[in-house]
Design a protein around this nucleic acid. Structure first.
Lengths: 227, 227
DNA sequence: CGCACCCCTACCCGTCCGGACAGGTCCGGC
DNA sequence: GCCGGACCTGTCCGGACGGGTAGGGGTGCG
């Protein structure tokens, strides 16, 4: 490689900067991250993407060492980011996925790891921590900020009841109506089934959610993003 | 007409840059915004704050023309940002509050305006739009990106039932317990009141929320960020 | 002083809920 | 073919729920 390009006064670092790709659907966030990272001599932002499809398309052409993925569980599609993380880490195993997110969701840290993420950093941290995390994952190590790591540990050692109950198709429908305050009779009418059947489904929902009443069911379902 | 004391020497290029203060509890976001804005010759980031208290304290010393306020309804304290917006716009009327947020919440746009915000921009927009918004509010105009404006219009012309019901202190407590599935009897026991009284409060909650049952109450309360 | 508002309590009553029985039909997989 | 699962239906019953009516207390305001 003929490094005829530029004569840096810095003889030490950057034999080759770490190529980073930014994935976030917010242009301003991407811009901000780019500005922050461009100050680092050994980091180069080599690509950006604002969606799942775009990210995967770009990865066919360029191969960054690190993908900085903003997992915003904001816009309803809670799992979209996780799917993308999984798609990247399976399809491009040489690329390290570093999840950057706004909130610390204990559950989400675990799911991110399962989806192949090599690190999880909450946006709350200072710039230095983010840069450190990028360095870490680029070297094949994992990188979790203190709180994420703690959340992960807590999640790991609490496996007694992690099994997310799976509602059947019908039960999900009933749950929707249940949340809007419909009585069993009304649910039955709406779904063209008898009140008895509606009660049957409601009972199953309560059992699966581990709750003892409709109100609590709505509360739990909300927390688990089932509504 | 606010063209007051200051005599501009140069009508042309930056006689004085627009002083902007950043309020966001995420250091990375602040850093990113600062980087973006520093590229604008006629904008100067003159202060930062990461919390309500800090912001108000800083405003005692410096007087930016624009406060860029990140209203993240993420961390539970949904109204904290709104309170800050209100505090700033009442205590420092010469300061324009420009709300910058991650999500477009129809309700929140209206509340922000009521709280005195002069503009509302979703982070999703490109940098140029943000810069334009800062210019606009600094000139005393209002600035809303297309979607926020649309949301505001929709909200405005739908005033038949916009009156947010206000729950009393006690009712809020009852609502919390209600959502966790407690029965009237249990609520009474927990709050050291009789079951009858618990029923009384629950009834008032249902009436104020305009719903007909506990389940629906939880659903509505969740939607209105009351839990 | 009324008046409004919030908080607390009691009784009645019809409805609904949730659980426990006890069945039935389909369907796909071992 | 048998088994499990999802889906559907019924009956019984004690308790919870929601609405109504009718009071008690306290605070703060004009």
């Amino acid at each position: 490689m003929l490094s005829t390009t530029d004569e840096r006064p810095e003889p030490a670092a950057d034999p080759e900067p770490i190529g980073v790709m930014l994935v976030d659907d917010h242009a301003i966030v991407r811009q901000g991250l780019r500005s922050v990272l461009e100050r680092e001599p050994d980091i180069a932002v080599v690509a950006e993407a604002s969606s799942r499809g775009e990210a995967l398309a770009v990865l066919e052409r360029v191969s960054p060492r690190v993908v900085l993925l903003d997992l915003k569980l904001s816009t309803s599609s809670d799992t979209e980011g996780l799917e993308l993380a999984h798609a990247i880490s399976t399809g491009h195993p040489q690329v390290a996925v570093l999840v950057l997110t706004t909130f610390l969701d204990e559950q989400l840290v675990l799911e991110a790891v399962r989806a192949g993420a090599r690190g999880y950093v909450v946006k709350d941290v200072d710039t230095a921590a983010l840069v450190r995390a990028i360095h870490d994952v680029s070297k094949g190590e994992s990188a979790f900020d203190a709180r994420s790591a703690a959340a992960m540990v807590r999640g790991m050692q609490a496996p007694p009841a992690p099994v997310e109950p799976t509602l059947s198709e019908r039960e999900s429908e009933v749950l929707q109506l249940l949340a809007r305050g419909l009585s069993n009779k009304e649910i039955g009418k709406r779904l063209y089934i008898s009140e008895t059947t509606a009660k049957f489904h409601v009972g199953n929902i309560l059992r699966k959610l581990g709750v003892s009443g409709r109100a609590e069911a709505v509360y739990e379902a909300t927390k688990r993003h089932m509504l």
